[in-house]
């Protein structure tokens, strides 16, 4: 059986002793904030950003066009989702890099700007610049996340795609920025159309429609990857990966050739997608409850997932799509005024 080998023992002991003296300092692995505190801070951030946005609005200005309002609310929903999700996930990653603070901070700023955009037409250039910053942050985030994935043994492996920084997540921040830019553009286009400059509404609708479709396809990949990681253990997990690309195709079709039937199909599928976002939030909450300890152990299980903050982004994208459809309704083929 296990027989000690004296020679080896002596050698190893010497090495150990040497190493013992130069023992590496332990890394601070545990977050220095309690999860309860983090969630409170995140909640306060959401409320503060919303209040800031509304404060800007309370100082007057015109009410933006309906398409702009849709897109702005979409941007706000996406930004709120990113704020909650990134605050939690980056906290889970101990904010190991300073850059990790960027996501929740920029998301909060975007949320405030988006809410301001939804209620007033003032300061559009500043807003557009801020949303541009959001897009840039999202794109940088994609780079950081990709680097994080590639830095681990296995590189671009399934394991790293499943468990390292989620590749698609910063894309949601970029989408929030795009929806914001879209909102500003829609408002401007609406004003020009009213001044009789034709074509601007059509172009803005076209842009918003394409961004929505791109977002839906991107989200399909992200949801598909993560639901695949969950082995589609619940058949309902197939719903978004069937619904999102269909909606994406429908909005693409309506954008490319905005005839009434296509617009109507796109609207219906967007409504279904928005509904799925709400249902999904509930289902993710149910998923959290299935972890050991359920909601009684919420400080662990909210992090364990599935992320409750993720599905609302579906509704955010749907709102962006509604904005596109509103513009296409009024400025595309066979214009109508859409449902009031």
């Amino acid at each position: 059986m296990a027989v000690p080998r004296p020679d080896q023992h002596a050698r190893a002991s010497r090495d150990i002793a040497a190493l013992h003296d130069a023992r590496p300092a332990s890394v601070a692995e545990q977050p220095n904030m309690r999860s309860g505190t983090l969630l409170a801070v995140t909640g306060i951030g959401l409320v503060a950003a919303s209040l800031a946005g509304i404060a800007v609005a309370s100082r007057g200005g015109n009410r933006p066009a309906r398409a702009a309002r849709y897109a702005a609310w979409g941007s706000a929903l996406l930004a709120g989702s990113v704020l909650a999700d990134s605050a939690m996930e980056h906290y889970r990653g101990n904010f190991r890099r300073k850059e990790m603070f960027a996501a929740p901070v920029v998301a909060a700023g975007t949320l405030a700007t988006a809410l301001a955009t939804a209620v007033t037409s003032r300061a559009t250039s500043y807003k557009a610049a801020l949303f541009g910053g959001t897009i840039a942050t999202g794109l940088f985030g994609l780079g950081f996340h990709l680097r994080n994935i590639l830095s681990r043994p296995g590189g671009l492996s399934w394991n790293n795609l499943f468990y390292r920084a989620p590749f698609g997540a910063p894309g949601a921040l970029a989408l929030a920025g795009l929806a914001g830019v879209g909102a500003v553009a829609a408002d401007r286009a609406d004003r020009r159309e009213r001044l009789g400059q034709k074509g601007h509404g059509r172009r803005a609708g076209y842009g918003l429609g394409l961004f929505t479709a791109a977002g839906l396809f991107g989200l399909t990949a992200e949801v598909g990857l993560l639901h695949f990681r969950g082995a589609f253990h619940d058949k309902l997990m197939y719903a978004p990966i069937l619904a999102l690309p269909f909606t994406g195709a429908a909005i693409m079709a309506a954008t490319a050739d905005p005839q009434p039937r296509r617009r109507s199909l796109a609207r219906k599928s967007l409504e279904a997608t928005a509904g799925l976002g709400l249902v999904g939030t509930g289902l993710h909450a149910y998923g959290v409850s299935r972890n050991m300890g359920g909601f009684a152990n919420w400080t662990q299980n909210l992090f364990q997932g599935p992320p409750i903050a993720a599905p609302p982004s579906l509704a955010g994208l749907a709102l962006m799509g509604f904005a596109a459809l509103d513009l296409l309704d009024r400025h595309g083929k066979d214009p109508s005024h859409g449902p009031r």
């Binding site: 681990r152 043994p153 394991n159």
Partner: peptide, 29 residues
């Protein structure tokens, strides 16, 4: 794992692989 690197092709495992622990990453490295 999705792809098992040895032997004849096998069907997909019913559930996905777990995240690698630091100890598993030592073997990987």
């Amino acid at each position: 794992p999705i792809r098992y690197p040895w032997g004849p092709k096998r069907g997909r495992y019913p559930y996905r692989e777990h995240e690698l622990s630091a100890s598993a990453l030592v073997l990987a490295k």
